[in-house]
């Protein structure tokens, strides 16, 4: 069914196609399924995420991307399946241990900790803090040194993300886009090996998107692997090395960004079958919703979600 011209790729071991083997995978997942009532939200037979690259996970709304993220990071439990991270099985490992193993995620709906300051948000991301132990916490000299180190690192990161001026403000006072930045910076405090970003651009002011893109590229330069979910095809094409396409819970296509957009399976996934347009020309439609709408929608969804808790 695939009419891609590229049959092989330097990242791939063998032929390019959905579920293809990678030369150097960091995550390998097998037979992962998650059912909600009658709906099979995730049904991934086999997928591998390449190490040291920026991989985009795309697909129409409701394709199961967020659910797949939740499963990989231990925030949800699959019906079946197993997966490994750097060769170590992570199936049924609780979320906090997944994060400690070096696989850190952000959320589609930002989860900044409103009544902590921006700096405290950052410090919370740091690992190996003796002061997080109940008994050690009481005696400040036991953790003061580590606190200084991580404060330094946090301030550096905040400067890089242009949040240094806000460091003593409550996170709740930041704009939606700044919260996204903060969440990403906070995830980096733990020096992860794989960063998983769920819609990092949604709701972000267009003025900030360029710098966000830069930051994501920067992660790769520092040797991290990145897996991100995004709707903005322009951005996907711009920064990703590899694209995985999900639809109705399955991996329907994979490939380098230049060619995957022309894959018939991808066009079908987005537009339904019987369309033969090139997705590259569909950008305008695919860029929907506009940034303002997305920001408003994200805020609204966020409020409503808080209302439900």
């Amino acid at each position: 069914m695939s009419d891609t011209a590229v049959a092989s790729h330097p990242l791939v071991d063998g032929a390019v196609g959905p579920g293809c083997k990678k030369v150097d995978p960091i995550v390998v997942a097998d037979g992962v399924t998650r059912q909600f009532g009658g709906l099979k939200a995730v049904d991934v037979e086999h997928v591998e995420i390449p190490r040291g690259q920026i991989t985009a996970l795309i697909g129409p709304n409701g394709a199961g991307k967020t659910t797949f993220f939740n499963l990989l990071t231990g925030f949800d439990k699959p019906n079946t399946g197993s997966w490994s991270f750097e060769g170590r099985s992570l199936a049924r490992v609780p979320a906090f241990k997944v994060a400690r193993a070096g696989m850190v995620r952000t959320f589609q709906l930002t989860k900044s900790l409103g009544r902590l300051t921006v700096l405290q948000n950052m410090l919370l991301g740091a690992t190996k803090q003796g002061g997080e132990n109940f008994f050690t916490a009481i005696v400040k000299p036991l953790w003061a040194k580590r606190e200084d180190e991580i404060t330094k690192r946090a301030e550096d990161l905040l400067t890089r993300f242009k949040l240094d001026a806000k460091k003593d403000d409550y996170a709740a006072s930041l704009s939606g886009g700044q919260r996204k930045l903060l969440e990403m910076a906070r995830a980096l405090m733990s020096e992860p090996t794989l960063v998983m970003l769920d819609e990092p651009m949604a709701g972000v002011n267009p003025a900030l998107t360029q710098s966000l893109l830069g930051h994501i590229r920067g992660l790769k330069e520092e040797g991290m692997s990145v897996l991100f979910v995004e709707h903005d095809m322009h951005m996907v094409r711009h920064i990703s090395d590899w694209v995985i396409v999900m639809a109705e819970g399955r991996i329907v296509a994979e490939g380098p960004p230049e060619t995957v957009m022309t894959d018939q399976a991808v066009i079908d996934a987005y537009l339904g079958a019987h369309h033969d347009e090139d997705l590259g020309e569909m950008e305008v439609e695919l860029d929907l919703p506009t940034v303002e709408e997305a920001e408003a929608a994200a805020e609204k969804k966020h409020e409503q979600q808080e209302g439900n808790h």
Binding site: A95, K97, V104, F107, L113, T127, S190
Partner: peptide
Amino acid sequence: KGIREDEDAVRSLG
């Protein structure tokens, strides 16, 4: 205090 604000976020930080 982080847990008070959003426990999933704190969980995601290990």
